[in-house]
Design a protein around this nucleic acid. Structure first.
Lengths: 334, 334
DNA sequence: GAGATATATGCAAACGTTTGCATATCGTAA
DNA sequence: TTACGATATGCAAACGTTTGCATATATCTC
């Protein structure tokens, strides 16, 4: 088993007491320490390789230096990039991050939140499942700092939320396709039951009205299902000139249909998506899309949470981030 | 700030003392508790929503219920899949996982290890940087349980290691390409300075000798660099019939070169790689490759670490996992 | 030279657990 | 009746920190 050096060990070697060592190591102001003693303590601590125990100091009300983050799909780089950006911010402030995959299953989410509370994390960032409002209640009850990202807590008010202008994403995409002359457009979306997310389709339709037709298909939140629905859609509507993906994870599978069928993207078929295409790197395969700037989402959420931790809770904050249109080569003007 | 219910609160409501409550909640044997009291305590705990504080109980020698894992590249799904599989195992045993990205930078690695020790994690899983042997010394000194995955701790002996048969990967790949008739093969590899990893090339060469030519190019550990080196290699050797990628992250960028040049994979050019192609999902784009079974790597590492935690350290364990040849459609017989 | 103030350090209580030890009430066998 | 094992519970010490309070000397100020 592991044997750690304690404040007492350091104190003994430095010939002083634990209290004094604590003061030196945290170099708090408001306490006089002679340079001579300070040096002795510092030396002893470094010779013994003293490593503070966060768990113990958090008992005295200090920060646990731990943050929990819940995402619904580890496999989806949209979410892992949010984590990556958030971690970057937290690490700069000395916090560690517990990343948990809920697999979009409410029961897992509930169990995870319970575990995180057991860990006495200083705060939670969460992209909730459909039962998020219910499952986060325990956390809210104990006054845990929490920031919601991307999806809302349906049926709740007054929480901190960093998200994307989903209607705007759809609308901008529709406007762009329309501008390029497309009038028969396949939309591949996700029946999530989350109104805010489904407004992507509304935006697309609003921007395309009245003279364009939108053929909607709904896939599961997976590449495989995106593949299958794309096949169905193309079979049903061979005259469609463009495909618009509402979710990158579905596009991830969907684009393989075009390759399979020998349809050249940007020539035989126009393709557009919301999010970042993780499968198309460097140089070519330059997708036209609506970037959600997930790194920025992650950073904003992290900074907001840090603020809450420092200052105690503030009035509910709602940050809505616009997407940015990236003009690539996957959409052809017709 | 958050206000948690303590054992004392539960004890008061149940009309007993903290000690008794602790016994009930952990239902340890060797202590008599009347059914009546037990029910009262359980009721009080659930009514108050008591949540145990891991930090406090770990002070008394209990498990911290926390594991740290260090990977060199969050962006690389090879590593995130290891994490995913490991997390699955840990969660089943009530442990949380702190996932940290070293970005392959030794200084970050060092800082991360220090933070994890501060958290008093119960164990560490690590894919080390080049300075791993040095950076993990603090952890080894305090007797922290540790399992190394994928890359070795160069210059050290006697640690627990779960890894891939790298020479075998290269050899099997070479044998397959040879069997398909390829005699002029481009190898895209990584000059890591880690002998074990570089043996992938040795394996490939050994399997191809004596009548095949291997043209080696070395890229950074990134898609972008894989793209650039592939361009160079194809320019230098237009007569090469196959490209073998030693690392999936390089192939991830590299395959875009073929698309860019209009080379049909599996027809105009044969492509093979070690690892899983995360960009090619479902149906078509079926790559011939050497699967490293990273999920299994992650599971094995997790299970090994759990064993160490339960039983205290055992004799050094070395698990070497063979890769499995997946025959797809990206290599043509000539 | 007397009080006040600045400098320097130790002591011990608390945080929320776990657990060994002590205590108290039984029923029952000698 | 005594004594003893079984049943049932409380008490308090520890774990490694942080911090308010007490103490002790040195340095001013008038």
């Amino acid at each position: 088993m592991s044997r750690f050096v304690t404040l007492k060990d350091v104190a003994e070697r430095a010939g002083t007491t634990v209290g004094t060592v604590s003061y030196v190591l945290n170099n708090k102001k408001g306490r006089y320490i002679s340079d001579e003693l300070r040096q002795r303590v510092l030396l002893a601590a470094s010779e013994l390789n003293y490593i503070k125990c966060n768990g113990a100091s958090s008992l005295k009300g200090m920060d646990r230096k731990l943050i929990g983050i819940l995402i619904p799909q580890f496999e989806n780089q949209f979410f892992t990039r949010i984590c990556l950006a958030a971690e970057e911010v937290f690490v700069q402030h000395g916090y560690d991050l517990i990343i948990c995959d809920t697999f979009d299953e409410p029961e897992r989410e509930k169990a995870i939140i319970h575990r995180l509370l057991s860990q006495r994390v200083d705060g939670i960032i969460i992209t909730p499942t459909v039962d998020g409002a219910e499952n986060t209640r325990i956390a809210r009850d104990v006054g845990m700092n929490m920031v919601v990202v991307d999806r809302p807590l349906e049926g709740l008010e007054g929480y901190h939320w960093v998200t994307t202008n989903n209607y705007g994403c759809g609308f901008e995409g529709g406007r762009y396709l329309r501008g390029c002359g497309h009038r028969k457009i396949i939309y591949i979306g996700w029946k999530s039951g989350i109104a805010d997310l489904e407004s992507r389709e509304t935006g697309l339709r609003d921007a395309s009205a009245p003279d364009a037709e939108i053929y909607s298909y709904y896939a599961e939140f997976s590449p495989e299902s995106g593949f299958a629905e794309t096949e169905k859609a193309l079979d049903d509507h061979p005259d469609a000139t463009a495909v618009f993906y509402g979710f990158n994870i579905q596009a991830k599978g969907g684009v393989n249909v075009f390759r399979k069928r020998g349809l050249r993207i940007g020539e035989d078929i126009s393709v557009m998506l919301i999010g970042s295409p993780e499968w198309a790197y460097t140089g070519s395969n330059d997708f036209s899309r609506l970037d959600m700037e997930e790194l920025e989402l992650g950073r904003k959420a992290a900074r907001l949470l840090l603020d809450l931790i420092k200052k105690g809770s503030a009035e509910p904050n709602r940050v809505i981030q616009d997407c940015v249109l990236i003009e690539g080569s996957s959409v052809r003007k017709i």
